[in-house]
Computed example of a mutant assay.
Amino acid sequence: MIEAAMIWNEPNNKSHWDPDFDPEWAIYGDLVRRAGAAIHAANPDVTRVLGGMSPIDPHWVNRMRAHGALDAVDVVAVHGFPLDWNLWPIHDWPKKIEEIEAVCPDKPIWVTEVGVGSFGAEEVQEFGVQRTAELLIGRAPRIFWYSLFDLPHEWGATTRHREAEGSSYYRHFYMGLIRADGTPKPSLDHYAKVAGDMGLMQWFHFEDPRLDEAVSWMKRLGTKHLRTGLSWADSFRPNALDWFDRQMEALADFDVTLTFCFTPEHLGPGAHHTSPPHDTQAFADFCGQMIERYAPKASGAAATSSPALQPATV
């Protein structure tokens, strides 16, 4: 069920990777090389995806090539939110993909997050779903709409600066096709028409109570491809593997792109999940262990027969 593994989320976005500790992305490049090798060793059939970039930046891709990171992945990914956070119009989506293809002609370009929120008006999101589908279906091999559910306000968005981002922060809570109270928005009907061709990106928080509801909705909609994540930081919580097992078992009927990210606070210089880790191999080991557990090489092997995750010692 695991089609692909993504190495971090938006590593060129300061909200998800702290540039104060890694201004040239050299640590991230090393992390990609090690994690890519670990994923390949665990199962060479799992597609390795460079952490989806946001902003879409060909100069950053060239930097990753210089660090040797592109040699450790099979796909380069982009994220775009032209009606919410980006400074380019939605109609430029093909141009943005072309910019990355120009510097990376040897790898497929996936759109692993694209979204339009209902922060200003739900009609804007309706247009966004329709126009995104027109522009990207048939243009990118994989497309993941962000997201299925609105983020509940009381949970808080997983960004580094939070309310200091101003109105940009509050847009995080309106990106779903379904409101936080469980009622569908008008845009859900438009997504349903293209669900077979445009997957969903949905983060599940630790012990997320929405998991079963999400699975039910995705099956009803006809969604085939899902991008989600497993948090390295969460792996140090009590009963972490119980939750990981439950999440992955629930998602067994979908082709999953699994994102590995988030540094445990005690394992990075910034004491924050966006901090580069002190030891990039520890992150790579986590990636390899998760692939061994949920996408083992042996055909038909049960996930529970794989070695248990042993968190790194402090």
Rank of each mutant, 00 (worst) to 15 (best):
A4D: 03
F127T: 03
W243I: 11
M290D: 02
V114Y: 02
D212M: 05
L177Q: 07
T280W: 05
P152N: 00
H153E: 02
T159I: 14
Q202K: 02
Q310G: 05
L258W: 14
E123P: 10
W243L: 13
T304S: 14
H153G: 01
M175T: 05
Y170H: 09
L221V: 12
L83R: 09
Q202M: 07
T132C: 15
D84F: 09
S216W: 08
N62S: 10
I143V: 15
P209Y: 01
A301Y: 02
H40W: 11
N12H: 04
W60V: 13
L50M: 15
R171K: 15
E207G: 05
F149N: 03
L230W: 07
Q281Y: 11
H79F: 06
A164F: 06
W17E: 00
G128H: 09
S306C: 07
T280Y: 03
E213K: 11
P311C: 02
H273S: 06
G156I: 09
R179S: 08
V194D: 00
A37N: 10
A69D: 10
E122L: 09
Q310A: 14
S15K: 11
W88D: 04
D181A: 07
H59A: 15
T259Q: 12
A72Q: 05
N62C: 13
M201N: 04
E249H: 09
R65D: 08
M1R: 08
R33C: 14
L50I: 15
A233Y: 10
A282V: 14
D22Y: 06
A252F: 05
Y294R: 10
R142P: 13
G138P: 13
L151C: 11
D242I: 12
R237M: 15
E10Y: 01
D197Q: 12
L230K: 06
F260Q: 03
G268A: 11
T228Y: 03
A252N: 10
D255P: 13
V76E: 04
S231K: 08
N43G: 04
V111L: 15
R237I: 12
F149H: 07
E163A: 08
G51S: 04
A180I: 09
R246G: 04
G166I: 04
V46G: 03
A66K: 14
H172C: 11
V124C: 06
Y294F: 15
L251K: 04
G270Y: 10
Q202V: 06
D92M: 11
D45I: 03
G288P: 14
Y174D: 02
T280Q: 06
Y146W: 09
D245G: 07
A37C: 08
K185A: 11
P55T: 00
L241Q: 15
N62Y: 06
R65A: 15
W25A: 13
E249V: 09
A42Q: 02
Y169W: 12
I7E: 03
T183A: 09
M64T: 12
R63E: 12
P238A: 07
V256A: 11
L148D: 01
D20W: 12
V73W: 12
S305C: 03
S167K: 02
D18I: 06
F244R: 05
A140G: 05
M64L: 15
I2C: 08
Y146M: 06
F236T: 14
I2G: 07
A66M: 10
P82M: 01
P58I: 07
V215H: 00
A252D: 08
R33T: 11
M198T: 00
C287H: 05
S168Q: 02
L177N: 08
A192V: 07
